[in-house]
Design a protein around this nucleic acid. Sequence first.
DNA 1: GCAAGGTC
Length: 942
Amino acid sequence: MHLIVAEKNISARRIAEILAGGKKVAEQKDAGVSTYHFGDTITVGLRGHVVEIDFEPGYQNWRSETATPRSLIDAKTIKVPTEKKIVSLLQKLAKKADRVTIATDFDTEGELIGKEAYELVRAANKKVTIDRARFSAITEQELKHAFSTTTELDFALAAAGEARQSIDLMWGASLTRFISLAARRGGQNILSVGRVQTPTLSMIVDREKEIVAFVPEKYWQLALDFEKRGEVIEARHTNGRFHEKAAAEQARDRTQSPLVVKEVRTGTKQDRAPSPFDTTTYIVAAARLGLSAANAMRIAEDLYMNGFISYPRTDNTVYPPSLDISGILNTLKTSPFKKDVEWVIAHRRPVPTRGKKSSTDHPPIHPTGAATREMLGDDAFRVYELVLRRFLATLAPDAQWKTLKILFDANGEEYTTTGGQLMEQGWHAVYPFSEARETLLPEFATGEKLPIRKVTLDEKETLPPARYTQSKLIQRMEELGLGTKSTRHEVIAKLVSRKYVEGAPLRPTLVGRVVTESLEQHADIITKPDMTRTLESHMQLIKQSQRTREDVIRESRDMLHRAFDQLEANEQVIGDDIRNRTAEEMNLGKCPVCGGTLAIKHLRGNTQFIGCSRYPDCSFNIGLPTAQWGFAIRTDEKCEKHGLNFVRLVRKGARPWDIGCPLCHQINSNRESLEEIPSADKGLVDRIQACHIYTVADLAHSTPEDLAKKLGVSLEKATELTRDAAVVLEKLRRRSECRKFMRDRLIPRKGRSYAKILTALKDAGITDLSRLAQADPATLKKSGVTDAETEQLISDAKIVYHSQVLKEIGIPAVSLKKYIAAGIIEPEAFCAQSPAALSEKTGMSLSTIQKHVDKVCTYLKKPVPKKFSKLQIERGKKQLLAVSGLSTLQVEKLFRAGIVDGDALLATDPVSVAAATGIPEQKIRDYQKVLKRKKDTAIIQL
DNA sequence: GCAAGGTC
């Protein structure tokens, strides 16, 4: 069997279709991976890299004493499978194959992906022949040629890719760990560093600095309005910008009617049709539709997967000769753009336009199938239309303009006006995305005199450079060689998710700025695009076998070690600097109590809250939900009333939770509970809030003296308030405990929400566990709880609630467990049966049980059953054991039945004792006889 | 938990 391994599924399918040459190709799916069968051949697609480079085990712990960030530089690396299903299928197929052809993309990464496949195949099958097919387009001609002239895998080319992998990993991981640890940032707040992302971030930071440092300069522009045949036309002074006001004013003052036409210059201008889309130019065009780079790529990938456009990751702006342009045009005749397609067919330029970049990997992005809005939805259809119209435009003729430039003289001052008229609309007919704006002018004759209506002198200022839009940044990255067509948009998305940059256009955040500056100061090399350039030239040398991979990596290691020499020497300074300068990002504004600074604080675990910078002198604070609900961050929006920044809770994979102004939130969410305090009417609650006491807890924890002073009420009133607050606080605590109890036990299901159930229960008066324990099952069922859940909830609530009570009474947790296991749950159950019976059921000693029963009965204000002292019990035991025939086991049984000494045994009814203990009745009578005799003897002896 | 590069 001949196995052909392609870089991706779609290539595998197309290769099979073409090589099958009209024969049927059967698709088979194995664990979700497709294979294509024809004759004795199977093709299979990888998913790009199916293995990933990582450090060997032992480097997982960032804080390890031995595996320090620096140690990663020299750490051994291994390849770990990331696409396990594909890897195992590939190896399964390899075992059966007698020839394997690597048919991955024809570029460095493709060769490396091919080598990864090669190694996996080799591991599974030592003998199989492995060759390599190279083609730059999946066409019949190319493939036939490639498969008839296969060669060996180019290990030098793959090694160049491996060098890049190693260098990126060791620089990225070691520096990321170093700087994150120094700044004491972990989890979602790590500070990442990388060969591509850091120079990209640096560009955004630099631009922001230019903007901040920009000093605007004033300049003046002179223009006039004149009239011709009732039409008012503007002409500008040919001097352009005047940098001195006096000169501009002088020119203005000299400008006098009439305006004399000095010269009329006519010309033509060719307006070239645009060149085909590669990834970058496509992203730029999509940005004008309002799509972010990542969104544009996501939609394009989707259209590609569904066969409407070609592969969207390409650097090529030249259609390959093999591309069947006429065939595509024919296909597009069935699209909603039929008329435009037909127009292009009728007016086609002899040769399609071509851009500057040409590569062999994939053709420029072009449409491949007909689609309608209904099939795609609005956004995807807009993108589809863009790609389709761009394709049409590259086949359409150039546009022709007639240009007109008129020079005027006004008392020695020269003015000019220009016009443009579209003579041949050409490609503009099918591509409305770049507008063709005409300025039509009437005819002028030299010497013609015209009246000036108005002269205007505008004072203007030079503008700072613009911030980068995503698409501008991607263009700039491409110019600098940063990233690839497939990764540039991901790099920007990464900078956003790391909270290094934000907004559109892009602005650096405080963290982004601080980290960049710190790295510029201590490890300059990683912040510059030069590192990528050097890497590329080294890779070139590896490809040409002029240097080895190991040699290049060694050089990179040495450089990184030198960077670490400086970083480690300054670790403390770097860490302090980043921490101090970024603390600001958590500041929200002024403390309403003392005027200090309120800031979000994150503690260990999931605790987060808003506290005052003057703590402990000022204890004002605002609680926040735990970080389980989202990590609290500041947003740019500010509360008009309190002047505080808004707070947002962010969580991976969840919609952010906007708290808004934390103080407004605090006030609103606690008002209702404050109003539950019986001794506080609405007016008093207002006054309490005016003193910055917003929660029942704050009120309950206030001292009456302090409160009386603040509120201007009597000490009695204040005492009453704090006491009532404490009661309400306990009620609130029980309420939230009950809510949590329900949440923990109700399984999330579609069509019902906790909130709904909880309000329904609240309306039914079930707000704490004690009420839930006694609840009518019907009430619960009405609130949306299922039968099974109702039963479980009530019985769990009974256990939890009564356990709380019993614990409070003083029953130790260990014993509690035994009682619960024996079904003794309610306190009443302790008085309803004899201690001995309890002892029997739980297996605990009678004395322990008696201690517990004593406590519970006292608590319930019920009579405590007769107790036996330790001494009594010991003496009784001795007495009983002295009775001949009575075994230890039987004594134990008697004890549990409440018979603790000889007298007690004598006094009992043998029938009932036999029933309670299981000792035969006759035996008991025998024991009683023995006892009686003993007693009588004792009396006689007396 | 880290990079950048493939692809979905």
